[in-house]
């Protein structure tokens, strides 16, 4: 498929093998600018691997990945140019389940690390941008605090600010609230809702079904490394066609997990 104005991410025939385990079985999809796409599925279904293949935290076994004009083609045994991988990574920000803040740096230090080390920005310029994004997630007052003194929700909001500061074209969220205490989930989801309302292109792996229902433009149900079903939330949650999707959602409703 050719890149056009209506496609910011395009993935074709993406395969991932972990040894003998076929985790992604030729997945293809595309995402439009400003679209919020939520991936749901059981643990082990391959939805996180899918996200991590996009920015090469896992190297895809084969397939084509295009993000905002950068295209990388992978094939078994073919070495991908690290410069291409870097270019791809700069198009995307990623937020992790375990936050992964750098513990030896302050909140501000975390947020400006990419600006200074990767973009070679002068310190004062980077600090100005860093403060802007700390303010955006409501944590400017934690500017000089080290991560150990922050709550889980605060850590994740700083991690979001850290990714945003690089001004990527797409934000990837890999189960951003799964490691949080229930009372801290809301503040992180609020930031994500705000980003969505501002027109940020987002791909979110999550188990927060009500968030998915409220915010997603499209939901993709992944099972055994394949996209089983996709569509707007109303269709997926209320009229799922595929039996596997139905069973998954029913087990979720019964499991009392924020549906």
């Amino acid at each position: 498929m050719l890149m056009n104005d209506n496609v910011i991410i395009n993935v074709e025939r993406l395969h991932k093998w972990f040894g003998k385990l076929h985790v992604l079985k030729g997945v293809s999809f595309s995402v439009s600018p400003k679209e919020v796409m939520v991936l749901i599925g059981r643990s082990g279904s391959g939805k996180s691997t899918l996200l991590r293949c996009l920015n090469f935290l896992e190297e895809p076994s084969s397939g084509v990945i295009s993000v905002a004009g950068e295209t990388v083609v992978t094939a078994p045994g073919k070495r991908v140019d690290p410069k291409k991988i870097l270019a791809l990574r700069l198009k995307m920000g990623m937020v992790f389940q375990e936050f992964n803040l750098f513990p030896h740096m302050t909140a501000l230090g975390n947020v400006i690390e990419g600006l200074i080390t990767v973009k070679k920005m002068p310190k004062d310029e980077a600090v100005a941008i860093g403060e802007k994004y700390l303010a955006k997630v409501g944590l400017l007052d934690k500017r000089d605090v080290f991560p150990i003194r922050l709550s889980g929700g605060q850590k994740q909001r700083i991690a979001i600010a850290r990714s945003l500061a690089m001004e990527p074209q797409v934000m990837l969220f890999d189960e951003p609230t799964s490691a949080l205490d229930p009372e801290l989930i809301g503040e992180v989801l609020d930031v994500m809702k705000q980003l969505a309302s501002e027109g940020t292109t987002m791909m979110v792996v999550t188990h927060e079904m009500s968030f998915a229902n409220d915010v997603a433009d499209r939901i993709i149900y992944v099972d055994h490394g394949e996209i089983v079903e996709q569509g707007p939330p109303d269709q997926i949650f209320n009229h799922p066609v595929d039996e596997r999707t139905q069973i998954f959602l029913r087990s979720f409703l019964c499991g009392d997990r924020s549906v």
């Binding site: 870097l86 990574r89 920000g93 990623m94 992790f96 803040l101 690390e113 990419g114 991690a159 850290r162």
Partner: peptide, 10 residues
């Protein structure tokens, strides 16, 4: 830690 740094483009 490594993944977070790589994803930032380091």
């Amino acid at each position: 830690q490594r993944e977070a740094a790589l994803s930032l483009g380091l």
